[in-house]
Design a protein around this nucleic acid. Structure first.
Lengths: 212, 212
DNA sequence: AAAAAAATATACCGGACGGTCTATAAATTC
DNA sequence: GAATTTATAGACCGTCCGGTATATTTTTTT
């Protein structure tokens, strides 16, 4: 038969990754055992090791898939032409994701960053690159909004983007810990304050956030 | 002999906690094995289990000691009478700590928050309380500065404090991941922007941060 | 000094871990 | 349809894990 895209092995491989992704997201990498992945994916050990050389290799594939899912999801939710609105849409999309998960798991990239940052250079390198992508995405929107006049021009777009990303990760940490969206909403408002108050010419499309 | 404070057992117990604290800080709780603690503390298993009922009990004692060390350290480094300066001193003290560690380990509370937040309610509860203490500390300084006129009065002190704490944790995560203090310094500056720019009457003792 | 309590040492346990090896079963190629 | 590659299954291994049970030493009390 001609090659029609996905072979049986590909499907199994993807199912393993998808299953492992969910388990790693909620339990962390080290606490997710191969046997747990095998049981959840309905796969025997020999099969798993046919598709992946090691647990680390599977972990890297999981990170890659998580990244792809994440950016696909983000791009699907950022539709507004105005750059400042795009930033809000981005943050809102991220935070909605965590609310839907009932704050279980938190940010899988942040989790891996803290769990493996000091232990596995390969993992750390991939997470660094993913955060860099995210920061770049934010920085482009911010820069456009600065040219637009809807965001203050004083601190560099890069600096502002770095802070927004850090604040988001910190807020997600607090949300996971407290099982509450309060800190996520607060982050959204505080970032709006930081970006728009003082030194920006126009109020943009939504104006200043209220202090409710 | 009369009781002169620390018995031999107390000293051993403290040595175990101190050793475990360092190991947990750099490797995480789950990846720190009892045998590693035993080897590093020069203690046999029977001795360890004489002082602690379980690994979890030891972990809770470690968190408690880390908390005490942390607040003692902070209070020692916050000396300025001006509340806005106190906030800067606090952040600076925290960040200096991480620089001195060469960004290895990061924030032990944040680490445990992400590692155990979904898995161990006892751990999560203690970390929640510690972050609450920190937030309260920040909120008091912020509120004083708001009355002072050196910090804008619009968002609640509580809201601002929550954001500062989240931003700090996120920055420490990035610093640990990238082994760089850049994100810590950026956090300090962005927080100063957020707190002081727009709506505050006076420039305080140090004025606006430059964008270097 | 004897008795009691506190503190430390050591051997052991069941189980889970990541990983390897070999045997098949299924699909593809020739 | 035979050969060969791809894919799956399952038994096995050495190691380390947290925890227990017991023995021994040290300290304190009487």
């Amino acid at each position: 038969m001609k090659d029609t895209g996905k072979s049986k092995g590909d499907i199994t491989r993807e199912r393993i990754i998808r299953t492992a992704l969910e388990l790693v997201h909620t339990n962390g990498f080290n606490r997710t055992s191969l046997s747990a992945i095998m049981a959840a994916a309905g796969v025997q050990k020999g099969n798993l090791y046919f598709h992946f050389d090691s647990k680390e290799a599977l972990g890297l594939a999981v990170i890659e898939t998580a990244r792809d899912n994440y950016f696909t999801y983000l791009k699907r939710h950022i539709r507004h032409p105005d750059p400042l609105e795009k930033i809000k849409e981005l943050m809102d999309a991220v935070f909605t994701l965590h609310c839907r998960r009932n704050f279980v798991g938190g940010c899988i990239f942040g989790n891996i960053a803290l769990e493996m940052g000091d232990l596995n250079p390969a993992f750390a390198g991939r997470i660094i690159a993913i955060f860099q992508e995210l920061k770049q995405m934010l920085a482009e929107y911010i820069q456009a909004a600065q040219r637009n006049g809807t965001i203050r021009s004083e601190p560099t777009a890069d600096r502002l983007a770095g802070h927004v990303l850090a604040a988001m990760e910190g807020s997600i940490m607090m949300a996971k810990l407290n099982k509450s969206e309060a800190e996520l909403q607060n982050c959204l408002q505080m970032v709006q304050y930081l970006l728009t108050v003082g030194g920006c010419s126009a109020g943009g499309t939504s104006g200043r956030p209220d202090a409710s």
